[in-house]
């Protein structure tokens, strides 16, 4: 894939602090963009529930392809089709909710970039996305 690895931003520093909080006083690496290396049903369920939780409990439908090739996951409204067969909302100005998957030490972290809230995924297996991967 040709997606570029993003620069580590201040957001990640905050996350690092959060991660330290989650992991006690262990020495950890700064979180880096990551993608799923394998996804089990348990991990998929956890991911789906975590995305929903970070969106206030909204109903969210995701597929097995989430974070498979990218550290970015975009969540949009489910497309709704009108009686004429066209999308109800074909001119969307609402920004999608963007999640990032990061890895710090051995922990996979899901972050809602809109709110900066994050959740450590306990069942996910992720690996750091290499540059130019």
């Amino acid at each position: 894939m040709s997606e570029q690895t993003p620069k580590i931003t201040a957001k990640l520093s905050i996350l690092a602090a959060l991660t330290i909080g989650m992991m006690g006083c262990q020495l950890i690496q700064a979180p880096e963009p990551a993608h799923m290396s394998a996804i089990t049903q348990k991990a998929y369920t956890e991911l789906q529930q975590s995305v929903s939780q970070l969106m206030g409990g909204q109903r969210v439908y995701i597929g097995n392809s989430a974070f498979q090739n990218s550290h970015i996951l975009a969540i949009e409204r489910e497309p709704k089709v009108g009686p004429d067969g066209h999308l109800l909302q074909g001119r969307v100005m609402e920004k999608p909710t963007i999640f990032h998957l990061l890895k710090a030490s051995e922990t996979c972290i899901l972050i809602n970039t809109k709110t900066n809230e994050s959740i450590a995924l306990l069942h996910a297996q992720c690996q750091i996305t290499k540059r130019d991967e």
């Binding site: 909204q58 109903r59 392809s65 999608p96």
Partner: peptide, 30 residues
């Protein structure tokens, strides 16, 4: 005006992974 709709908010709020939908992966034209 062909674009005047209403629907339950709980349905409008439903979200999904970009481009992800239940189906067969075939787009058909009626």
């Amino acid at each position: 005006d062909n674009f005047h709709f209403q629907m339950p908010t709980v349905d409008w709020q439903a979200q999904s992974q970009s481009g992800t939908q239940l189906g067969y992966g075939m787009e058909f034209k009626i």
